[in-house]
Design a protein around this nucleic acid. Structure first.
Lengths: 213, 213
DNA sequence: CTGTTTTTAAGTATAAAGACGTAGACCGTA
DNA sequence: TACGGTCTACGTCTTTATACTTAAAAACAG
């Protein structure tokens, strides 16, 4: 079997180092490159071509979804494996659409990682059983409607400020808008996210990667 | 030098496996045990005594702070290293109070991990420079006042319901209380947690382990 | 250029939250 | 028993948030 080169893209250095060491012990793994965010990965992908990239979804600077899209533009044949947390459930469809064909939870074991790499390398898709379970348990969270009604940039911006505890008035001042405009954005946010109030909004923001704590 | 046994307590299996492999290559490391949450760690600590435990702060079932307290009860001489994310800044004091004397960010490199283990083993404390920076940048978030005014059981109960998005009226109905009582509890919560509003309360609940998502 | 989405803004309501203060009941303990 | 802390409850007033509607710029894609 031809050896497989791999890119590990994750913002936690320890995680990268550990995974790299685990993979380096496999005889069918060739080069292993690291990047600490999507931007760094994209910037160096041409220089370091790989068969497989393992992408964390939540990362600073450029997240896994954007990175996946760009990677497929640069190297259409690249295979992408998403490394997700439980909390990333709402991103799965975006990742599929961006070209990922492997899905691993970060708390899956190394056996699964190896299987994912081999499967994906052979043009099969791999999804860890926990993720599948998760999707089946929360079908409403993974349907396309919620996916298509994603938040606009402005809405995401305002959502963040709401989560920081600013009132509509304060947000309006900060963004130089009318308070009524912010009122409306907030109302749309509640509707889009199926939230009843501010508390629900904060939880939504957290679960959907808009807010990092 | 006597060899050092280490417990790795983290809910991400891949992270554990990677760190374990990294550590196992060091000649001064003896046994390496793993647990995927605080409960599992505490349950097996007597069976697997170690010099050093590396504790993730945010974990399901039992978090790092509770685990640290219990561990010190079971094995007063154990040395504890907190493995934190950027987001755990509000936990530092709790972790110090719980007995941790090492602080590592998960995106620190393996060099730092090694130094932390050696330092902590020799009764020195170790704190990664990024964490120190972070504390110095946000001194108000790390003061003792908030730490000493911990919440009562009732307050914690009501905090949870607030986070779930219930209104004071709904909470009053659910707990068979007057709405005015819930009003008062909420007011006290805001004061104790130094929060301005519901959004701040939810964030507080998350950062302080009252709420798990 | 045209249709769509996003962003902006406002009117008019009601509901909920937040900021003061006060005070009795209960419970463990010093 | 007396004290401190918690839990309960109420009054009043101000500020914020929520719900419903309408609509005009602005940005953008086909």
């Amino acid at each position: 079997m031809k050896k497989i080169s791999v890119y590990i893209v994750d913002d936690h250095s320890l995680f990268r180092e550990g995974l790299k060491l685990l993979l380096s012990n496999l005889d069918y793994i060739d080069q292993i490159y690291e990047a600490e965010n999507g931007q760094q990965f994209i910037d160096n992908l041409a220089k370091n071509p790989v068969e497989i990239a393992m992408l964390d979804i939540e990362m600073p600077v450029m997240n896994g979804i954007q990175a996946a899209r760009r990677a497929k533009e640069i190297a259409p044949d690249i295979k992408l494996i998403a490394l997700s947390m439980y909390s990333d459930e709402n991103y799965y469809l975006s990742m599929i659409e961006a070209g990922a064909c492997g899905f691993l939870l970060k708390n899956s074991n190394f056996q699964e990682v190896k299987k994912a790499i081999v499967d994906v390398y052979h043009d099969k898709s791999y999804i860890s059983i926990e993720i599948l379970n998760n999707i089946l348990k929360h079908p409403q969270k993974n349907n396309f409607s919620s996916f298509y009604e994603s938040l606009t940039d402005r809405e995401a911006e305002i959502l963040l400020l709401i989560c920081k505890g600013l009132t509509n008035n304060e947000i309006a001042n900060q963004l130089v808008l009318s308070k009524r405009t912010v009122d409306k954005h907030r109302e749309n946010l509640l509707q889009k996210t199926q939230s009843k109030n501010t508390a629900n909004l904060v939880i939504y923001a957290l679960k959907n990667g808009y807010l990092k704590i």
